[in-house]
Design a protein around this nucleic acid. Structure first.
Lengths: 300, 300
DNA sequence: AGTCTTGCATTTAATTATTTAATACACAAA
DNA sequence: TTTGTGTATTAAATAATTAAATGCAAGACT
C-alpha cells in the first residue's frame, strides 16, 4: 500500500549505465550531479548509492565515492514493466466508446475501465475529470461516472462548435503568407483529392483518411492551445462517425471531395469570403452526415 | 482509512424526518421505497433501519416494520459538517491565482492547496486534471502539478479564442427572434450604460460589473455546452484583469461604454455586419487592456 | 401467475495509511 | 564562497480498507 519504486529502479540502472564507461577506481560525481543526470531527487540517488555500496560496486565514505568494479548487465535491477502510456488513453477510450457504440447515459465503472484499458484507477479518474470539462462525462450523485455523450443535442452542439472553429481557421488560412507550409499542404491535398476522385468507384473508403488530413491542415494554421485541445476530440468523433454511416457512402464521399476542392480553390485565390461560404456548405453536409449516422446507429 | 459514512448519516436523518408525521404504529415503506426517498442504496437504508430498531424507534421482523414512537430532534445523528461545496472550487481557485498574482510556472502542491481551500486532496486532483484540459495547469514529470497560465502567449491565445466565441455570439444575437429575452436585457443594459456614462467621473469602477453583465447577456444566446464551459473561465479572467489595470481606468471605461453602446445599436438595427465590426473593435481594445494589465503587473 | 420485498453475496467507489520521493536547511569541506 | 553531504520535513502515489451500490434468487403477498 504505497507508491511504486519504479523511479528508484530506473534511476539505479541509469546510474549503472553512467558508471560503465568509467575507468576503475574513478571518482563518482556528487549526489546533486547524479540527481541531475538521472532526473530524480537526491533521495533516490542516495538509495542507489547505498545499494551500489552494499553490492560492492563502489566505496562510499563521506564525499569520497569510488568505483570498485565496472558494472555488468547482471548488476541491473528489474523494473516493473508496462508504462502503457496514458497519453493515448484518450484515443483508446474514445475508440472504445465509438466502436462499441456505448449509449448515452451509461454508467462508467472506474474499476471495470481500469481493467479493460490496463491503466491504474487513479489515472482513469483524472482522465474522466478532464473529459467532464468537455461535457462528455459527468459525476453521478451516487458516485462514479457516467457517459453523457452522443445524444442528438450533443452532436448538434459539437457540430456548431466545430463550425465556429473551422470557419475561423479558414479565415486564418486565407490570410496566411505565401511561404506558409499550409499552401504546399493544400496543393498536395488537391492532387490527392483529384486522384481519389478518379478512383472513387473502388477506393471511396479511402476518403475518411483524406478528410482527416484536410481538416488537420486547415486547422494547423491556428496556433491556439484551447482550440487545439478541442480539435483532437472533435476530429476523432467525426472521423469515426464518418466511417460508420455506410448509406450512400460512395456518393457522399464524392460530393465531399468536390466540397473540399471548392474550399481549396477559394483559399488559393485568397478569397476569404468565398472560402467561408464553401466551408460553411461543407460543414452543413458534415453535420447532416453526423446526425444521420447517429440516427441509423440508434435505430439499428 | 476508509470512506466516510456521511451518506448513511444524512440518509438516517432524512428517514427520521419522513417518519415524524406518521401516526404511531404506522407501517414503514419497503426498503426500496425508502431508498428512493433518501436517494441512496438499499444497503444504506438497512443500516438506518438497523439503528432505528436498536434504538427502539421501530419494530422490524421480516417485512413487517412499524413505528414504535415518533422520532424526536435528539434522535437525529450528527453529520460531519463542511459541505464546502466543490462546485465553487473553480471560482475560488481562479480567484486565488489572480488575486495573489501567482506567477506562471509555479509548482502547485496538492497538499497545500487542499489545506488552503479546505477540500480533500482527491477532489483537488480531479479539479486540476480538469483545468489541464484548458492548458491552465499541467503535470510535472517529477510528480505534482504546475500552474502554466498567464504568460503573454496565454493571454493572446485566450483573447483570440474569446474573440472567436464572442463574434459568433454576436451573430447569433442579431438573428435572435424579436421575443427573445436578450432584447429586453440589451434595452436595460443600454439604459444602465447611459446612466453610468453620466456618472462616469465618480462611479467609473462600477463598469467592471456592467461589462460582465453585458458579455453574459450576449453569450447567453448561444446554447452550447462547450462554449458555456469556456465562457465561465474566460469571463472570470478578463473580469479580474480589467479591475486591476488602474492606468487611465476612467478614460478606458468611458471608451468601453461607447463601444458597448455601438454594439447594441447595431444589434437592435439587426445589422449583423455592423455588429460584428463593432464587436471586433471592442474585443481589440479588451485584448490590449489585458496585455497591458499583464505587463504592468509583471513589472511592478 | 405475477409483482413486490427482502436476504445474501459480490462488486465498486471514496478515503486514509503507508511508503517512496522531493525538498528544505544546516553545517562541513574544499 | 562555493559545493557537497547529513538530516529532517513535507508531499505525492498507491494499495488497503471500509462504505455504499448493485445483482440475483428465493420468499411473501396480492
Amino acid at each position: 500500500m504505497a507508491r511504486s519504486d519504479t523511479r528508484y529502479r530506473e534511476a539505479y540502472n541509469q546510474i549503472l549505465a553512467f558508471c560503465e564507461p568509467l575507468p576503475a577506481a574513478a571518482p563518482i560525481p556528487s549526489e546533486t550531479r547524479l540527481a541531475e543526470i538521472a532526473g530524480v531527487s537526491r533521495t533516490v540517488i542516495r538509495r542507489c548509492l547505498a545499494r551500489m555500496e552494499e553490492l560492492g560496486l563502489i566505496s562510499w565514505q563521506g564525499r569520497d565515492k569510488r568505483l570498485l568494479r565496472t558494472p555488468q548487465a547482471e548488476d541491473r535491477i528489474a523494473v516493473p514493466d508496462s508504462p502503457s502510456d496514458r497519453s493515448d488513453l484518450e484515443q483508446r477510450f474514445l475508440d472504445w466508446v465509438l466502436r462499441f457504440d456505448v449509449p448515452a447515459n451509461t454508467p462508467l465503472s472506474v474499476a471495470e475501465l481500469s481493467r479493460t484499458f490496463d491503466v491504474p484507477q487513479h489515472d482513469l479518474k483524472e482522465f474522466l475529470a478532464g473529459l467532464s470539462r468537455f461535457g462528455l462525462v459527468s459525476r453521478r450523485p451516487q458516485g462514479g461516472w457516467m457517459l453523457l455523450g452522443f445524444t442528438k443535442d450533443f452532436a448538434i452542439e459539437l457540430s456548431d462548435f466545430r463550425s465556429v472553429l473551422e470557419l475561423n481557421a479558414v479565415t486564418h488560412v486565407a490570410d496566411a503568407p505565401v511561404d506558409h507550409p499550409v499552401w504546399a499542404a493544400l496543393a498536395q491535398l488537391r492532387r490527392d483529392h483529384l486522384s481519389l476522385k478518379d478512383a472513387i468507384d473502388t477506393d471511396f473508403h479511402e476518403f475518411s483518411k483524406l478528410d482527416e488530413r484536410f481538416h488537420l491542415a486547415i486547422n494547423s494554421v491556428v496556433k491556439n492551445r484551447f482550440i487545439a485541445e478541442f480539435q483532437k476530440v472533435i476530429s476523432l468523433i467525426f472521423h469515426y462517425h464518418y466511417m460508420w454511416d455506410k448509406t450512400e457512402e460512395k456518393v457522399r464521399n464524392a460530393a465531399a471531395i468536390d466540397e473540399h476542392i471548392a474550399i481549396i480553390d477559394a483559399l488559393e485565390a485568397r478569397d476569404a469570403e468565398a472560402a467561408q461560404a464553401a466551408a460553411l456548405r461543407h460543414l452543413r453536409t458534415s453535420r447532416t452526415t453526423l446526425l444521420s449516422s447517429l440516427r441509423h446507429h440508434h435505430l439499428g
